[in-house]
Nucleic acid binder design. Structure first.
Lengths: 126, 126, 126, 126
DNA sequence: GTGGTCTAGACCACA
DNA sequence: GTGGTCTAGACCACA
């Protein structure tokens, strides 16, 4: 379900956070589903439990999961999360576009590329 | 000419690199212009000279500047750089869009947002 | 009668204790009333019986209930309990106010806020 | 400057966070002041550096400090923080008052006690 | 069994 | 020197 990319420069705990965010946002993990236990997942991924712990703590802080002491971690209601995630994505896009324009790339080139790319992806999936 | 944002989480050398890339790409610094000396710039920004050194090394590695021993650093021909920079930006955009789609955000929302945003920016500048 | 909030970060046994303390203090449960049996309540709330056991032990320790072997748990006389509870609340309030003042919030702001808030609550109930 | 209370049930990292929040909010530590280095503070308090690290990470997340890689941690502008802290305190007070009222303590008793207490504290300081 | 905290110690990026 | 990440391993509270 989750694969760590050791060549990725991002820290492991962040990769774990991102993987679970996707799984939760697109409904693979539904509200109140039980997350794998810290120890189990640590074993599965051959990662130290502390690292998983940190990822789960971050997921909880962001509202993706909640902890019941002695029982485990569970997925929260996805309700407002999708909106927040969208804002996050939009903000990243805006920043990239801003600096791109400053570097002399035209707005038309940027929007053109994205539309092109998304069409390509769409046709791949269909 | 260059301002460091200490509250930015990115390392200082990376901020310096990015600032110069923009200055070179949009022509503020032209081909064969002399870069400020490592020591001077370090003093100006109250930064460790090692950090500037590292930024310059990175700029040279990416082909934005070249070094003449004993004389200093100079801006390269911008020729191919703009194309490479564009590729870099496009790649970043594609990655963000990919994960966004995986999280359940539709392609239409993404392209829609970007077009909207770029139009807003364009009208601000005009 | 009792609802557990799994998203609450406090341990379950503590939530159970607090709920019963309120029920006893405001008279919903009167002196010598029988408490639900450990097993029954555990079933009702889908909670581990050990957890209820622990909550009851804590309630007994604080004097809110007493145990009769073989017969069950019963509510104590509320007599002195209300006074103790009040002390407890006052102590918590004092601590919060102390640190607030240390952080630079004025005493007037604190008392002002509380009066304001209580008036609002009072009017809601009437 | 900072003292850990091992009898306090709260985790060490949380105590460190709270101590620094007070120092920053009431101006003992001003904007852009350097925080003690993780290692130094760890030595001083005979605490593991990881624990300090965690406290600092939390302080950064809450906006009290910012990190400059390779340089250290620095105090942020206190501007909006005081307002947020006040909200936090008010929320805690409201919750306590709510449950107190549910337990049968009158609003008048609560506000009366606080006013009384704050007056007492005020006269101590003057 | 489940998560939370902490220590000891290592290694890395950055300045 | 400074912070950031990670491992190994221990101990505790809670269910």
């Amino acid at each position: 379900m989750i694969i760590i990319d050791y060549k990725d420069s991002r820290p492991i705990y962040e990769q774990v956070v991102d993987k679970f965010r996707l799984l939760i946002l697109n409904g693979v993990l539904g509200a109140n589903d039980k997350m794998p236990s810290v120890r189990t997942l640590a074993m599965e991924l051959s990662i130290n439990p502390n690292t998983i712990q940190r990822a789960y703590a971050e997921l909880e802080r962001q509202g993706y999961i909640y902890t019941v002491k002695g029982r485990g971690n569970f997925v929260s209601d996805t309700g407002s999360l999708k909106g927040e995630y969208k804002e996050e994505v939009f903000k990243k896009l805006d920043e990239i576009c801003d600096t791109a324009v400053k570097a002399g790339i035209s707005a038309a080139e940027l929007t053109g590329h994205i539309e092109e790319y998304m069409k390509g992806e769409e046709s791949k999936r269909s």
